[in-house]
Amino acid sequence: MGQGGETEQGTYTRLLTAIGDYRRHHRVGPDLLGPRPQGIDGQEWDHLTDAVDLYTHARVQHRLEQLRTRTQAERAVLLPATSPLRQPPPGTDGPSRRSPTR
């Protein structure tokens, strides 16, 4: 990818981050993007909104994985190898990534 594409990608990433952060901290009131427009502009609005949601989800998943890795590394340093706290629960590959059922 050339310089122009990288600059555009960086700008788009900063935009998605800013909108996602705004939505997370300002839940009351109108959406930062405004009401959904009609027609083709509405389709573009949907695309941007979906991109914000997907990007936010990916950031959260990445951060959770970093926390899991750090926690496992800290346990490995602090706990003896035979400690049950150092091992994942039986029948799993580590912490559950599924949402709890109600």
Rank of each mutant, 00 (worst) to 15 (best):
P100G: 00
Q72K: 14
R97K: 15
T71M: 14
L67W: 04
L54Q: 12
H62I: 04
R97A: 14
T92F: 04
R86F: 02
R59I: 03
E74Y: 05
G10T: 00
P90G: 05
Q3F: 07
T49H: 06
S96T: 11
Q43H: 12
E8C: 00
P88D: 13
D50K: 04
P35I: 13
G4D: 13
T17E: 03
D46R: 07
L78D: 08
Q72S: 14
P100H: 00
T11F: 00
G34W: 03
A18R: 02
G42V: 07
V52C: 03
R70N: 08
P89W: 04
L67Q: 13
P30L: 11
L33A: 02
W45K: 00
R63A: 13
G29Q: 08
R70L: 06
V60N: 08
R86V: 05
H62G: 12
V52Q: 03
H62W: 13
Y22R: 01
G34D: 01
L33N: 02
A18H: 06
P100Y: 02
L64C: 09
H62A: 11
R86M: 05
L16Q: 02
W45V: 03
R59Y: 02
Q61I: 09
G10F: 00
P100K: 00
T101H: 09
D46Q: 08
E74S: 07
P80Q: 09
R24V: 13
D46L: 11
G39F: 06
E6A: 01
T69H: 09
P30N: 07
L32S: 02
L54P: 03
P89L: 07
L32A: 05
I19P: 00
S96N: 10
L33K: 00
L67P: 03
V28P: 06
H25C: 13
R63D: 12
G29L: 08
I40W: 13
Q3I: 04
D31E: 12
R14M: 02
P84W: 08
V28F: 08
T92H: 03
E74D: 11
T11S: 05
E8V: 00
T49G: 01
L48Y: 01
D46T: 09
R98C: 10
A58C: 06
G34L: 02
L67H: 04
E74R: 04
E65A: 14
H47E: 13
G34Y: 00
Q66F: 09
R97M: 15
Q43R: 09
P88E: 15
R63W: 11
G91L: 11
R27V: 11
